[in-house]
Write a protein that binds this DNA or RNA. Structure first.
Lengths: 377, 377, 377
DNA sequence: GCCGTTCTAGAATATTCGATA
DNA sequence: TTATCGAATATTCTAGAACGG
């Protein structure tokens, strides 16, 4: 999309969009391990570029200029800024090649290490909204985001945000396909769901504790507003390939975690039992409930801050959270053909039970780790 | 695939391979109905032809020379022979164009009707065996064949040969993935299984009683030896496309059926309810199960001999069957903007009726016909 | 599509395809009234053309040669043949300009009078079929056709073939949207259904007894095979606009009616308990039944032969008729994942109730006639 | 090098929404 | 107003590609 922007002259960039670039951190994975990042809320340098050449032929993509980073990142990661404006994303320095760009909207190219930008501290799309001329009213990313919030509690064993809030995992593909997916999508096949993920540039983690999870830089827990920036792949051939370098996949556990409540910049969140969700400027208002938590995700490895935080969340807090979202979905007028009472019951029933070992191991989204135990079909 | 044949002059056809062509019948689908064939074991004339246009540009394909068949088939079908030699198949007359060739190993090209050759009466690969230089010891087709024989009885409700022995059907994808597949393959995903089928040129039937089943000319019940002739797709772009003409899909019920026991020519087979699993020549020991057969596939139409077994379906059953068709969407719990309570009521009522939920949902290999009821994920 | 073929040299056309051109009658509407045609099974002149230039750029289409009709039609209509071969339809005379061609596959252009070709006597698509490489297995036209057969009896008050078998009508949009549509489509909106109709070139009748009905030359009762020839609109801008000249809409009541039983092919099917539908090759003879009529469509005007015939159909007969189609579907081997008997019951129950006059008049697909009573949603 | 597994892309149809004539 | 059309997204099936054995 903005492939050729690297070679375009630079000036005349509107400065009123600085607010959007308050702090975007780029994490460039290392092949030998995961990238670590211990800080956040960091505002980076950037230099505006003109919107000239957005032509993105694949030929242009292959002939890259040598990288010349404007900002030298700390060891293990690099950081630079980019401008988010309309349908175009800008590269402000050359260290970020086109495959990088593509990872922004469509993923990265084969053999290119993962590069992850932390957009958790930029505001929701300002000055840009996805075109709504055709298609559905609520695009896939938003719908997916709502789904993850709606099932926050009851179906956590099936699909859920990972603790760090930067990726989500379908833990039980069969149940997901049978129970969750029909409520939000017209799909009947998991592959269709995956196709949508690919079309929107989600990438799959193949290693580590999050293996099988999908992530997207703009897909963060509580930040549904960022979804507006996720663009669907349009032309053929511009899509991304699965990253060849799995070892460079981002390690979200070394990044600041995303607050389950919609936040905009504050990454510190009170994780106490009855935490008050901080005021949110986005449209989704958090609901407060009192119900107890039923099941914690038990087969995710603990890690750092988020994990600790989560451990302290009271059951009541959690379940309230989930139920609230469900209500929210209902209140928002979504019209789900609810599976008959039986289904509903089964969901609740199952989610109330302790997970059987079989269920725990069942994870078809984790082929690398437990290939024999996966439920996926 | 047979690309090089295109440039070869037309003569010099090896005669020592005549034995292989003892009787290959070609069934070309008609659109107004299925092609009938009442005879078998028919040896045909053939005369070698140069493989002029194997260049597979779409242009060449459209501008075809008028067919000049050497053999005039009975009405409804045409027949001609081809040479089976290694990885190459030859067209011996012009009525069978290149796309036909591709259908042999890799499917057919756009707009070309299905053409099915009856290889049931040719011996197992003579003079050709698949190269074994690398790869696994037992390639996919053989393994699949073994699987189908191994599960001949106990798991017939899950996966089984169709009565005619020319195609197989995965009736219950979930069970198949969970129970059967792990015993024979390392796959954990049904899509991987399907990918293999595609790689080896299997084609899917989209209409009629066998909808959802896969077939390959060289994949016949009891003829595991023929599997040696099935070659894996090697170069990109030569693969097959899904047949465009669903109505020209072969009607196996009008061809001689393939005996469940490894035979070479006798096509009568007893299809009784308690068929004994035939002896298995393969290395993998057949699995013995104790569970009773739960359900015969009841929505397969009867035909010919097998029909007897299925004739026990009551007419009432049948009509229900037809009417069922109407409900197909509802039962699956699809999420449509529900009409008010009345509709809801009727839906619930219907969905509560006797069908076992598992059986109802189990048919994900039939997306076109019962898209709502599939188990596939 | 085959616009430029008119100027291509002609020779070497295979004569074995004459069968396809047995009788295609073209009805060109007159502005002052409807076109009448009392004959059928008429074989027309045609002159073979080479398959050379199928190039179908829109530019070519605009530069038309002056018409030079080969056949002078009787007053009120013109007739000529075209060749249906592969993906190409041929114009054998120039009297049929581009808009006509488009009407074949995509409807007619705005302001251009309706031209209707009677394809009821040509065989199903031979040698050509829709590409199926991507997308769904069963395209919209076929699915729609199945729907109309499936609801033949029980939901006739909601949606049904018109008596002549050349058009269908959604009589009760609300019920259609709520009850019928979800069974066959994933749509939730009637407009989506209409969009599909438009995409496949259906046209709406705005005047006369069939006002509100949609028709397509290739969409005839009992001739699902012809649906293969219906192509989906691919490129933008080639579609048709609503005909400006409503008075030139075809009058199907002056054309031979399409037999409810499948014609042109094997049409003999044992319908179980009662009637054996006679094998019919031609489209002209209406079935005669002996039972009394139960529910006539009451706001349809009577007309000619077909209507009379229908009046003689008994209620029992009607249901048998409907059941026959259901059985036919079964006999044809369709494999539907069965919904329970309950569905059948509910449908029958509703369809057996006496229609309220309000319901009868409610027809949102008939804006011109009863715009105030429409149920449309 | 061949084969098996997996992830992702291509391609076609389907569905929806808004615009337009 | 109404039906149709452009355009965007959605769903499905199949193929490409990488990697490991």
């Amino acid at each position: 999309m903005s492939a050729s922007s690297a070679s375009s002259s630079a000036q005349a960039f509107p400065s009123q969009q600085d607010a959007e670039m308050s702090s975007i951190l780029e994490y460039a994975g290392q092949s030998n391990g995961h990238v670590g990042l211990n800080t956040s809320n960091r505002t980076n340098f950037y230099s505006p570029k003109p919107a000239l050449s957005v032509g993105s032929s694949s030929d242009e993509r292959r002939s890259r200029l040598p990288p010349s980073p404007l900002v030298t990142p700390p060891s293990g990661w690099s950081v630079h800024a980019r401008q988010l404006e309309g349908h175009t994303d800008w590269h402000l320095d050359n260290s970020c090649d086109k495959s990088d760009q593509r990872s922004f909207s469509s993923g990265s190219k084969r053999g290119v290490p993962h590069i992850y930008h932390d957009y958790s501290n930029i505001p929701d799309a300002i000055g840009y909204v996805r075109k709504k001329t055709g298609g559905v009213t609520q695009p896939f990313p938003e719908k997916l985001h709502e789904m993850l919030e709606a099932v926050e509690e009851d179906s956590r064993r099936i699909v859920f945000w990972l603790e760090h809030g930067r990726a989500f995992l379908v833990q039980k593909p069969k149940e997901f396909t049978a129970e969750i997916m029909p409520m939000f999508f017209k799909q009947s096949k998991l592959t269709s769901f995956q196709r949508q993920l690919n079309l929107y540039g989600f990438r799959r983690i193949t290693q580590g504790p999050d293996a099988g999870a999908y992530y997207h830089e703009m897909f963060l827990r509580g930040r549904i507003g960022l979804c507006q920036r996720m663009t669907r792949q349009k032309v053929k051939g511009t899509g991304h390939k699965q990253p060849a370098d799995a070892s460079s996949e981002p390690n979200f556990y070394e990044m600041p975690s995303i607050d389950p409540a919609p936040t905009l910049g504050t990454n510190t969140f009170a994780s106490g039992a009855l935490t008050v969700v901080p005021p949110i400027k986005s449209s989704t208002e958090p609901l407060q409930f009192n119900a107890p938590v039923i099941g914690e995700p038990q087969n995710r490895p603990s890690h750092g801050f988020v994990l600790g935080a989560r451990n302290e969340i009271s059951p009541g807090m959690q379940s309230v959270h989930g139920a609230a979202h469900l209500l929210q979905g209902i209140a928002s007028g979504r019209n789900f053909a609810l599976p008959p009472a039986s289904t509903q019951a089964s969901i609740n029933a199952s989610s109330l039970l302790p997970q059987s070992s079989g269920d725990l191991l069942a994870n078809s989204f984790l082929p690398d780790i437990a290939p024999r135990n996966k439920e996926e079909v």
